[in-house]
Design a protein around this nucleic acid. Structure first.
Length: 355
DNA sequence: AAGCCGGGGAC
DNA sequence: GTCCCAGGCTT
């Protein structure tokens, strides 16, 4: 693709020059260890650097080498991931660590094509690891790169479509200097996150303003084009918080819904009364009949949540055990609760309970 | 192609 | 409230 303001080489030189004056100081840039870089890239998927940073430190400390992660129990990995969201990332991370350790002889994949085969590694992440750890000239295209290229080159394609993704990847791969791919990739992302920001960028002080199509055509606020259809669904969840002596009743969430693999409480949505029937057998004492109300906002769902708390007599313990077995509930002593990986909503609830 | 998957920060 | 974040998988 030709550009009326800028040729490919001039563009990459401008971007890299800017980057050398304005680099972000990020810990995963100080290493070429592919395992650490992979860890950082998975953590940073759809996640701001500031939000992911503490998790990167936690994981590197808990699992300094791939072997440590491969040999860790999944429950522990999910517990470390607690609060970061998109929990499939953590399950895939653990799956891949085991796969690399046990099936690939502990040898981390070294090429874009091989990296792309890993669960949870798509074109962005494969490009990032292959360029940063192995010097391969594969251009990353993340949200920052979409924005920078759309504005500088005046591309009006809807970045939500697969066609546009291919278009941007082709352009980025044309622009990336083969002798310095890693620095170019870092530069593009830093430029997007610090200079060419989504809202109200400081274009007057941008070194590329003379060469920016969007700036010169008053399109900065319009580009990149993204047809967004985020439908937010409302949802009512009624949790039953059951305790018997020192034990709490928990439920590990199944696939096909949010928070797969994480622990919350037995719950019902809608008119299902089966849980209430089982509960009636246990002679519960209601702690509160109305239940505590919580509102929890997620990207795609608004959750209206009620917690009803029940205290069961210890004389019902045997019956409770039987029900837990039938219903696939877990009985967990209070001091073990901290080890369970829980959705943020449940963490907040427990905090209010002083747990 | 569209839907789904979390949580948080900026505005 | 809306939009976006160092995206990827499933249907």
């Amino acid at each position: 693709m030709k550009h009326k303001y800028l040729d490919n080489q001039a563009f990459s030189q401008h971007i890299i020059r800017w980057y050398r004056d304005n680099p972000r100081d990020l810990p995963w840039r100080e290493t070429q260890n592919p395992y650490h870089i992979w860890l950082s890239e998975i953590i940073l998927q759809q996640t701001r650097v500031a939000q992911g940073m503490p998790y990167y430190y936690k994981f590197v400390e808990a699992y300094p080498e791939l072997k440590n992660l491969a040999l860790a129990p999944e429950e522990e990995v999910l517990r470390l991931w607690q609060g970061l969201g998109y929990y499939s990332r953590a399950r895939n991370l653990h799956f891949c660590a085991k796969q690399i350790w046990f099936e690939l002889d502990g040898k981390f994949p070294e090429s874009y094509a091989e990296l792309l085969k890993l669960k949870g590694v798509g074109s962005y992440t494969a490009s990032a690891i292959s360029s940063f750890a192995f010097g391969e000239a594969q251009a990353v295209v993340d949200g920052n790169v979409f924005r920078v290229l759309a504005r500088i080159f005046g591309i009006e394609s809807d970045i939500a479509t697969g066609k546009a993704k291919k278009e941007f990847e082709a352009l980025a791969n044309e622009l990336i200097p083969k002798d310095n791919p890693a620095e170019f990739n870092q530069a593009m992302m830093d430029f997007g996150s610090r200079q060419c920001v989504p809202k109200n960028p400081d274009c007057e002080n941008c070194p590329l303003k003379r060469n920016c199509f969007a700036f010169n055509n008053d399109l900065v606020q319009k580009l990149p084009v993204k047809i967004n259809k985020t439908k937010v669904k409302e949802r009512q969840i009624h949790y039953h918080v059951l305790t018997c002596g020192n034990d709490w009743v928990w439920k590990k969430r199944k696939s096909g819904d949010i928070w797969e693999g994480l622990f919350d409480f037995p719950s019902r949505e809608g008119a299902d009364e089966s849980l209430d029937d089982a509960l009636a057998q246990l002679n519960p004492e209601k702690i509160n009949s109305e239940g505590k109300e919580y509102r929890h906002l997620l990207s795609h769902q608004k959750l209206n949540v009620r917690f009803s708390e029940w205290k069961l007599p210890t004389s019902s313990y045997a019956k409770l055990q039987k029900i837990c077995e039938e219903q696939d509930f877990a009985l967990v002593a209070e001091e073990e609760i901290e080890r369970l990986a829980k959705p943020k909503l449940i963490v907040n609830y427990l905090k209010d309970q002083g747990i």
